[in-house]
Design a protein around this nucleic acid. Structure first.
Lengths: 163, 163
DNA sequence: TGATATTAGTTTGATGTCATACTATAATAG
DNA sequence: CTATTATAGTATGACATCAAACTAATATCA
């Protein structure tokens, strides 16, 4: 079905001009960037003292999907560089939230495990997050938001393929 | 700790449990964050030497929506802090892409204008962006992506209201 | 009017992230 | 088997961003 555009000029048969493509793409990614910033800020604001979303995310990932992952696996999961993950893991190790052990199957590599302290802290962090999550969830039109999921998946794939 | 909910099924009729809300929200924002990172990286990769998306965005914004904006207006438009905008504007001024003049109507304030050099540079930057934009646009299912727009708008509003 | 609160912009310090270069180990090709 | 290439992780330097504290000007209100 041909979508109706507000200007009426963009019929399906006439592709967007290059500048229009740029403008649209830019607007889209700008909007997404702002949402990312706002959500990160919202989480950071209520997370316990000194812990950043990036740190909590790793703890949470290890808990939910199982620990014993390599740093590279974690970096891939969050699409950050290895160097950044080294940084994050150092922080988590300094706080004794994780143990990093050599990988018996590959001496270049390491395996990351949650400590008891790390697990406890994760629960603590989740409790801190709870009121904010309730507030946001309460305002969210879940139905509407779920509509975006396929588009987001698609966007990510396209960006991944164009790296 | 009490209930073993881990792999529980989602009953349609019962609202999501708190942990599930957290998980879903987190997954959503994580996905959005990754898209934001990937798109920023994609733009930065092809922008001319030493110019960052943040800088280009400001130039582009001033061009498209007209210059003579205050720093705070710009900061609001991109949802970054005033301090960050100060930083960006300093950079742009150092390169003589913008002029910053006192605001005759408010002596606390300033007005930002594009220089000729800034306009020229913006065009140059757009040319650099073009192949990447073409590549991405070519792969994008526009229809699908447009579906996400209302959800994104909604998300942003909810986050804004919960600040 | 005069005290108080708000707003515009800057500064400072911290930090998450990236790109790049580097070391060590593993995998692969000739 | 040896040489080349690829991969895991670390180190370094740069930078965009934030939060918080600060100055100056404006707005509010009692």
């Amino acid at each position: 079905m041909a979508t109706r555009k507000e200007t009426g000029k963009n019929l399906k048969s006439t592709p967007l001009k290059s500048t229009q493509r740029l403008t649209s793409l830019f607007a889209l990614f700008n909007e997404i960037g702002i949402i990312s910033q706002l959500s990160t800020a919202a989480f950071n604001r209520v997370l316990p003292e000194g812990i950043h979303v990036a740190h909590f995310s790793v703890l949470n990932h290890l808990f939910r999907l199982g620990d014993g992952k390599t740093p590279v696996q974690l970096a891939d999961a969050f699409q950050i560089t290895k160097g950044t993950m080294t940084h994050t893991l150092n922080e988590l190790q300094k706080r004794k939230f994780i143990d990093i052990k050599p990988n018996p199957e590959d001496r270049r590599s390491k395996l990351v495990y949650l400590t008891r302290k790390g697990r406890t802290f994760r629960e603590h962090a989740i409790n801190s997050l709870q009121p904010m999550v309730e507030a946001i969830s309460g305002d969210l039109d879940i139905e509407l938001v779920l509509n975006a999921a396929p588009a987001l998946k698609h966007l990510r794939e396209v960006l991944d393929n164009n790296r």
